[in-house]
Design a binder for these strands. Structure first.
Lengths: 111, 111
DNA sequence: TTGTTATATTGCAATATTACGATGAATCAA
DNA sequence: TTGATTCATCGTAATATTGCAATATAACAA
């Protein structure tokens, strides 16, 4: 049905999935990487950097903004975006504890 | 258009996005967590554990299997699934280096 | 063989996502 | 004011995802 049954999962599972969804698209990965690289905020240079239409980039930025991962302030005619370090760290914590689950099945990989 | 323009992104960006997509849905998060918890492989008990139809669980398992994150072997009438430690570690490496990008914007959060 | 159990696959419906052109709103320069 | 620039939003089209019922397949037990 295309609709996720989030009610049947825990808050943690839903949060984890939401964070993962943030960079489950290469364009958003590229945006975040560029924001990290240029540290000082970036605006529409993303449109040149990434080969997507301005409307498309704006849409991806909106998703990242909604999650709180980035923030933007109007700077004259342009908008300056940058990483929100607080939320990024929070995400890192949530995802790391998931990724670092023990894989120590010794050698007896059962399957 | 619903179709991702993966050609315009690097192999790394696409791979990162693919790994992230693996657990961008709470059901797949729950499946992976359960597989970690029960270590010894698990089959259709996932259907009881998670409140989704058998067909739906099977579909999610297929996606995880396609990515290589899990593997399954036929065990009589049932199928035993477990984490593929090698691929999991590979994913951990890829995602960690992305997550651990420096947030040291000092305090001058530009935006 | 027949029935049972466990899983995969198929087909379908509902919703979500990706992408872009066109348009709107805001700011600044002349 | 007018025009140019930058970004957001709207509308739309194409495709993807999620979910399930029904059915198929495979292995075993009797």
């Amino acid at each position: 049905m295309g609709i996720t049954k989030s009610e049947i999962f825990t808050v943690e599972q839903n949060q984890l999935a939401q964070f993962a969804k943030a960079f489950s698209h290469p364009a958003r990965v590229a945006i975040l990487q560029y924001l990290f690289k240029t540290k000082s905020c970036v605006c529409g240079s993303l449109v040149d950097e990434i080969g997507l239409a301005q409307a498309t980039i704006s849409q991806h930025l909106k998703e990242l903004k909604n999650l709180g991962l980035i923030q933007g302030t109007v700077e004259g005619t342009s908008v300056c975006y940058c990483i929100n370090p607080t939320v990024w760290e929070e995400m890192k914590t949530v995802l790391s504890s998931f990724l670092n689950q023990d894989t120590d099945v010794a050698d007896d990989t059962c399957c």
